[in-house]
Design a protein around this nucleic acid. Structure first.
Lengths: 196, 196
DNA sequence: CTGCGAGTATACCGACCGGTGTGGTTACTT
DNA sequence: AAGTAACCACACCGGTCGGTATACTCGCAG
């Protein structure tokens, strides 16, 4: 926690950074939106970069709380429903991917926060999948589908992407019996994700 | 094609936009890097926004050419190898996702270019999958895995993401025989992606 | 009563932003 | 010979960038 004015600054900065991007939002606008002054911003946080890092750290917590709350007692494939629900209000997509687009590879203090968020989500899905008896590779596949769905729902403009990802996830989680079709003689089978 | 100075400007702008982001690069820097002047830039393109749109259009063509060339005669799952090869030099990830992070939802003239690229890639994967006897839903799954792999290889910092995506793709393309395990009584089977 | 942390208000800094205007130099066309 | 498209050099514009400085007020703890 920070001081009252500090919290107001974080709240204003978070909303502005997420909606318009990091470089597009100046410190003057942040201070004005928060109803405080630029002086207070620099007294609390020292630099815009530090405020950016704090914005992403806070957002990690908010998402994790949202996810845990909505996933309680539900199977792992329901992450795609939770994602769809989240994206209904967070229509600018993944804040971490967006931030990386602007600051990636620059040594910005927020870079490790971005990486940590992706790693946390990977671990979450792997663990949840494992609890339901699936190997790690299945969790990794869910993670890929999850990130792909986020991108395609926003930059791709396809609001049904999470639903499609859910359907794909079911195929990975519960592979159907091998219905041999016209193809099937030129490749070796056993492409199960088990035991990798 | 454009005039010689125009081409130099596009080349300089493309490299700078991709590496540092759109807002981070000013028109002065672009003109100087191209060895020409800001005046010429505005005479050719009219605005920075138009140059951004052109940058993305050109990049669409470069990627499509790269993809076609490397995919010749190879099965659809090899897109993930081509992606890995591409990302070895294009280490800032998907230019379109990055651009969307900066200009998404602003009415920027480059927005339709971004959407078109995602749609083109979806159609490509669906078509390639169909040629090999797979239904549309399989192509859609490949698209999700492809986008997820790109994000996780860059923002996620996981260089093995494309390889993981390839493994997941094989499981979707060639579902193994249903090895019933400890789980399997609480869900209905038949989660094949066929016929959707 | 004094010191201090937190906050406000406002002015200021050099640098850079996207974009324009002026004027002059080639080279190719009609 | 005249016109024109392409280009360069350079100066200029108002506005905004991240960041700093000065001076003042308030509430609270010693």
């Amino acid at each position: 926690m920070s001081t009252p004015a500090g919290e107001k600054l974080i709240a204003a900065a978070s909303a502005l950074f997420y909606r318009h991007g990091i470089r597009a939002v100046g410190v003057d606008l942040i201070a004005e939106t928060a109803g405080t002054t630029k002086k207070t911003l620099y007294d609390r946080f020292g630099s815009k970069d530090a405020l950016v890092a704090l914005y992403l750290e806070r957002r990690t917590g908010v998402w994790q709380e949202f996810l845990h709350e909505h996933m309680r007692g539900r199977p792992v494939e329901d992450v795609f429903d939770v994602l769809a629900l989240w994206l209904r209000e967070q229509d600018r997509g993944c804040a971490f991917v967006n931030a990386y687009a602007e600051i990636g590879g620059t040594g910005h203090p927020a870079e490790p926060v971005i990486r940590a968020e992706k790693e946390w989500m990977r671990a979450y899905l792997v663990d949840r999948a494992r609890e339901e008896g699936h190997p790690e590779a299945v969790g990794a596949a869910l993670h890929l589908l999850y990130e792909g769905a986020t991108v395609l729902a926003t930059a791709g403009g396809d609001p049904d992407a999470p639903a499609r990802a859910r359907a794909s996830a079911l195929a990975v989680l519960y592979p159907p019996a091998d219905q041999e079709g016209e193809r099937g003689q030129e490749h070796q089978h056993d492409h199960s994700l088990a035991d990798r």
